[in-house]
Simulated assay, not measured.
Amino acid sequence: MAETGYDPKRSKVNKDKLDEFVQRDIKGDLEEVPGIGPAAVKKLAEPDAQGNPGITTTYQLIGAYLSLKNSECDPVSHNDYFWYWLKEKGISSHRSGIVQCIAKKCNSFMPGLYDPSMYESDDEEE
């Protein structure tokens, strides 16, 4: 089965680590984001095909996430856009976990950006 966008069920981030990340202050080091390690830091730092500079801080990563939000996209589409953006940057591991961490962090100071209930299916209620 092919991966198609963000799905919180594919996140492998430990709930405690996720909660800790959402609650603590941002320091700027990309590796503070659960799911981002040295290989992802290197890929994010590379300029894109249009010559835009790479992402080197957590602040810039949050900015990239927010830049993909427009008034017409719902939280699910927004998280999908970010998931695909990470894929384009070459992030092949922990993509859903990174999306979940950044989305929940941003939702903590901008409520409405992330709604986990939008990912629940009727199958889960049975």
Rank of each mutant, 00 (worst) to 15 (best):
M1A: 03
A2I: 04
A2Q: 13
E3D: 10
D7G: 07
K9R: 15
K9Y: 11
R10L: 05
N14G: 04
K15Q: 08
D16K: 11
K17T: 04
L18H: 12
E20P: 02
F21R: 08
F21Y: 15
F21W: 10
V22Q: 12
Q23H: 07
Q23I: 03
R24F: 06
R24H: 13
R24Q: 15
K27I: 12
K27F: 08
G28N: 10
G28S: 08
D29Q: 14
D29A: 14
D29V: 14
L30T: 01
L30F: 01
E31C: 13
E32C: 05
V33K: 04
V33R: 02
V33H: 05
P34E: 14
G35H: 03
I36H: 03
I36R: 05
I36E: 07
A39F: 12
A40P: 01
A40S: 10
K42Q: 10
K42H: 11
K43M: 09
L44M: 09
A45W: 12
P47T: 11
D48T: 09
N52V: 06
P53R: 14
P53V: 07
T57P: 00
Q60F: 05
G63P: 04
A64M: 08
A64L: 05
A64Q: 05
A64S: 08
A64N: 01
L66P: 01
S67E: 10
S67M: 14
K69E: 01
K69V: 11
K69D: 05
N70D: 03
N70Q: 08
E72M: 12
C73T: 12
D74K: 12
P75G: 13
V76N: 06
V76Q: 09
S77E: 15
S77I: 15
H78E: 03
H78G: 08
N79W: 04
D80H: 09
Y81L: 14
Y81S: 14
W83H: 11
W83Y: 12
Y84V: 07
L86M: 10
K87H: 09
K87Q: 15
K87V: 14
E88I: 05
E88A: 15
E88Y: 13
K89W: 10
K89S: 09
G90P: 12
S92Q: 13
S92I: 12
S93Q: 08
H94T: 08
H94W: 13
S96Y: 06
G97Y: 09
I98W: 00
I98D: 02
A103P: 00
K104I: 00
K105E: 07
K105F: 06
K105R: 11
C106Q: 00
C106V: 15
C106L: 10
F109L: 03
F109R: 06
M110I: 11
P111T: 10
G112Y: 05
L113G: 02
D115V: 03
D115C: 07
D115Q: 02
P116I: 09
P116W: 02
P116V: 02
S117N: 04
Y119C: 00
Y119K: 03
D123S: 06
D123K: 09
E125A: 08
E125C: 00
E125G: 00
E125L: 13
E126K: 10
